[in-house]
Simulated assay, not measured.
Amino acid sequence: MLRFKAKVFSSLLIGAALTLSGCKQVALITASDSTRELASAADNGDARAAYSVGMRYTQGLGETQNYALGLDYFETAAKLGLKEAQYMLGMGYYLGRGTAVDYVEARRWLSAAADQGYTPAMQTLGEIYYNGYGVTRAPMRGIYWSLQAAEADDAQAQYLVGISYLTGLGSNKARRVGEEWLMRSAQGGDQRARTLLDTLN
């Protein structure tokens, strides 16, 4: 029985791979010449080309929107070390776009991008750990990533750092420091920071 189940599972995996491969071939038949050229370059190990194809399909830029196909190209580029693709792949797993929600894979790829200093990935990881989204809540770890993104002028991260200093959750409580971060966040366009500052004042 166990051997039978293993064969069935293996067949399902092969079937899924063939389905995606078939979808890719069909999509590329109807794709623009520039997309086909990029896809060919991606198949030859060009990470930037793979990322560009991924963006075209996930965002519907000149091609019919197809998250699953776009994510496949992001994965190609992510495995080649492209931080932007690692971030997009991580967000795909995190939001369940083009694939099932998988928080472990999401953190894996977001961490890979964050380790390369990619600000959006650091900001997202900060929120994930600070709020406990799909992971055991770890405010200090969340602020570790948020602070790096905040120092790179990410308004959302600056807001979270401000909240942390105001409440003492994830950092030492320091109202003045918290308000300074909220002011920077508000100047960067985060409406939540503006609203909170009005309340505090």
Rank of each mutant, 00 (worst) to 15 (best):
L13K: 15
R141P: 00
F74C: 03
A157G: 09
G96P: 11
G162I: 08
Q116R: 10
W109E: 01
Q158L: 06
T35C: 11
N201Q: 12
S111Q: 13
V177D: 08
E105N: 13
T136P: 02
L82K: 03
A152M: 10
K83Y: 05
S164V: 06
I14N: 09
G168C: 04
P120Q: 05
G92C: 05
Y118K: 05
D72G: 02
T124R: 11
T64F: 08
L71R: 14
D190G: 00
E37K: 15
L95G: 00
S146L: 11
G92A: 07
N131Q: 14
R192M: 07
E75M: 08
L200M: 12
K79Y: 09
E179Q: 15
V135E: 04
G81E: 04
Q59H: 09
E127S: 11
G134F: 11
D153T: 13
R137S: 05
Y133H: 13
Q191S: 11
A17W: 09
A85M: 08
D115A: 15
G134C: 11
G170N: 02
L12T: 08
Y73M: 09
D115T: 12
Q59A: 10
L147F: 07
T64R: 08
Q116N: 05
V101G: 01
L28G: 02
D190K: 02
G98F: 08
G90W: 10
E63P: 03
R141F: 00
G81D: 03
N66L: 07
T58Y: 02
T35D: 04
N131K: 15
A50M: 11
S32H: 03
A112P: 00
L110H: 12
L182D: 00
A78N: 06
Y87K: 07
T124V: 15
Q86S: 06
A152Q: 14
A78K: 08
G15F: 10
G90V: 12
A193W: 06
G15H: 09
D198S: 12
G54D: 01
G188A: 02
